[in-house]
Design a protein around this nucleic acid. Structure first.
Lengths: 335, 335
DNA sequence: TTGTAAGCGTTATCAT
DNA sequence: ATGATAACGCTTACAA
């Protein structure tokens, strides 16, 4: 920067002024500076800037795993929104096999990131989230923690769940089962609540529908489906509601492996509408969450909070849209 | 830090010494400092550190898109390796609709990252890469640029391609076609070369096999497959080699939509072995690249270069393993 | 409109 | 073994 000033024959602060146009500077001198910058290929040292400004123009994004396309889509949305505002996104994938994620809080405290986008996804206890939120702004995606009022961007899971369940019921199914997500997760609760509303609306006692508890992973879909396969045909549900696509995929695999036809023998629906769900045979009926937009929105909210444009106490709602495909059909007469 | 020094009754430099154990300090005073740190929940300001040290303990990772699971897996590997060495990973997803990615070079020059992991993936001209490499260390993943000797971590695509083609030929196929990747990409060239070696080895003139040019995306798989579908049955290939899974998936969709059975009417193989490939019907025969390990390795190489443990002029090779599944069978007699 | 100078929180050199 | 103190590269009063 000193070099630039020298090269342009101005003082160092003038350079700073043109860089941030934070001060008045004569057009002619401004150009001289701009030239010098170009010639010297000068680029400000961001560490020094950060030190002075006390902010790093960087946010953290914690996701349970990137190979889950839902998270990948959210991540892309976050990165897009951040990039548009010249903010960097650092990827944090908490190592399950590791100690407290109090690490992330330290990350925040050490000023390496100004704030955090948090996708709890598969698990993670509010405990550590509390630590995190104490150290700086946090916005949640597709999650809400009852006790603490954290800004969040969520989709209307409950409504989506209600609608997809209603769709299944409309096909005439009466013997159902659900594979739910981790009971501690808000989304899992919402989806279950949505299903139950639909059951009640169709005159079915919600408590009469068995709920298998899953963990949102494919393996738990298969495992729970295996139990269903073992049931006598005339007790076996004719339709299975899975709280996410991954579990639905696991369940479908298990059913196929055991000779059950989908949807003839058992209809299956998921939730999330992962891109891969349309590649399955049959294509999975699911509920689409606008993952990319949710990420985009969350980043925007976080950045607004950081710029104090927002007070940070709201939750953004986005639609969750049912996608009709061919993994559902009316129940067939027993064979 | 001043507070910590005060609280511990020592000088500020003593605190620094214990923080980095960069100087001698009496056991008893060290403990006093450690205590103070705990009590005050002190965490060093990394911007100040970076300013002084002239490095930021952060690397950039540019990937074309995260929704491609191959990239997602690499990314996870990178992040793991970096985290193990207390290094942050910033995610860069070049916006295709945007100007030059000279931006990334600026990122490096502005000292917001110490180095970059680069996955060219779908495209990107060496031109800009050159800019990048001029500004700091860059390591490539699953790519090599002939002109410039950049460190890289690649898998043995050529061998993998040769083997999967050989497998197809062993089934008795003689009328083949391939859908290749972007001709400018090294991986695309390698895979094609591998196929051709196998053809030659089986007594087939490599030049007699039609090569459709794709772009590694699903859409180009379908589009090229559509051409194949239009051919008269007795000229139509009985097996199709796709240079990656995404295109294979596109092709399969197209074939199915047009009533061709896989593999009876046409065998299909891919490359990458994405997790989803095992969910397709039929399950796709493919070549697995150790994506996670490649990412891990690449990050390790980059960090070693940054610590000057490596001279940065080598390429790491990893195996590419063929995964036999059911999208291939011997050619059927014409119907 | 422009320049001078005082920090920002660390690290590291040099006396002590 | 410990403590002043001068950078590191930038921003921003404040003075000119």
């Amino acid at each position: 920067m000193k070099d630039v000033a020298q090269h342009a024959g101005v003082s160092i602060s003038t350079v700073s002024y043109v860089l941030n146009d934070s001060g008045p500077v004569a057009a002619e001198r401004r150009n001289r500076v701009l030239d010098a910058i170009r010639v010297l290929e000068y680029s400000p040292n961001e560490s020094a800037r950060s030190l002075k400004r006390r902010t790093v123009s960087t946010i953290g994004m914690v996701v349970p795993e990137l190979t889950n396309q839902f998270f990948a889509m959210v991540a892309e949305g976050v990165q897009k929104a951040a990039a548009a505002r010249d903010v960097l996104v650092v990827l944090v994938v908490p190592d399950a096999t590791e100690l407290p994620e109090e690490n992330q809080a330290k990350l925040l405290r050490s000023q390496r990131v100004d704030g955090v986008i948090y996708l709890s996804g598969t698990g993670s206890m509010p405990r550590s989230l509390f630590e995190l939120a104490r150290s700086g702004p946090v916005v949640l995606v597709d999650e809400q923690i009852p006790g603490m009022e954290l800004p969040a961007v969520v989709s209307d899971s409950r409504k989506g769940a209600r609608e997809i369940a209603a769709h299944v019921l409309e096909q005439g199914h009466r013997r159902l089962a659900v594979i739910g997500g981790p009971p501690a997760l808000w989304t899992a609760q919402q989806r279950l609540a949505g299903y139950r509303e639909a059951f009640a609306g169709a005159g079915i006692d919600p408590d009469s529908v068995p709920v298998h508890v899953g963990d949102y992973r494919q393996g738990s879909g298969s495992a729970n489906a295996a139990e269903i396969v073992r049931m006598p045909v005339d007790e076996r549900p004719t339709a299975l509601l899975c709280a996410n696509d991954l579990m639905a995929i696991g369940a479908m695999e298990c059913f196929k492996a055991n000779g059950l036809r989908i949807p003839e023998d058992i209809s299956v629906v998921g939730f999330d509408d992962l891109p891969i769900s349309t590649l399955l045979t049959p294509r999975l009926t699911s509920v689409r969450q606008p993952a990319h937009d949710m990420g985009h929105r969350a980043a925007t909210v976080l950045l607004d909070i950081l710029e104090e444009k927002e007070d940070g106490l709201m939750v953004g709602h986005m639609p969750a849209l049912i996608q009709l495909r061919d993994s559902v059909c009316p129940p067939q007469a027993a064979r």
